Amino acid sequence: MAPRVAPLLALSLLVLWNSPAPALGGANDAEDCCLSVTQRPIPRNIVKAFRYLLLKDGCRVPAVVFTTLRGHELCAPPDQPWVDRIIHRLKKSSAKSKHHSTRGSPV
């Protein structure tokens, strides 16, 4: 009996391995979404950019993803005051740099 089970088991595993995984929560589910967020404040001076990953985007954990100067991505809760302060600073900094870059030098 055992010799007949092995090929059947191997075939079953092959079929499962090659089957496309069902979409559970949207396109962002595993690749782009945070599995958890840190409650510990992230130092503002190490953050260079941010983006939102929300429930409406297909993520199970809503988060703000901060990108550090070294390229690391840190997930933070979007409803925390320290997260708002970092976002405000980044937006203010971005507006300043855009303002300075639109001032052309005289030709």
Rank of each mutant, 00 (worst) to 15 (best):
M1G: 03
M1H: 05
P3S: 00
P3K: 01
A6S: 08
P7V: 05
P7G: 07
L9M: 14
L9A: 10
A10V: 09
L11A: 10
S12Y: 06
L14I: 01
V15H: 02
V15P: 01
L16Q: 05
W17T: 07
N18D: 04
S19K: 08
S19H: 08
P20H: 08
A21P: 12
A23W: 10
G25K: 15
G26S: 06
A27H: 14
A27G: 13
N28S: 15
A30C: 09
A30M: 15
A30R: 12
D32E: 13
D32Q: 15
C34N: 10
L35E: 10
V37N: 07
V37Y: 03
V37I: 03
Q39W: 00
P41A: 03
I42F: 07
P43D: 00
R44G: 10
I46W: 03
K48D: 08
R51E: 14
Y52K: 06
L53M: 09
L53F: 05
L53W: 05
L53K: 10
L55S: 12
K56P: 03
C59T: 09
R60W: 13
V61M: 13
T68H: 05
R70K: 15
R70G: 14
H72S: 12
E73S: 12
E73M: 11
C75N: 04
C75V: 04
P77I: 04
P77V: 01
D79S: 02
Q80W: 01
Q80P: 00
W82E: 00
W82A: 00
V83E: 02
R85M: 02
I86Q: 02
I87W: 01
R89K: 10
S93F: 13
S94R: 14
S94E: 14
A95M: 10
K96P: 03
K96V: 14
K96H: 12
S97P: 03
H99E: 13
S101C: 06
T102L: 09
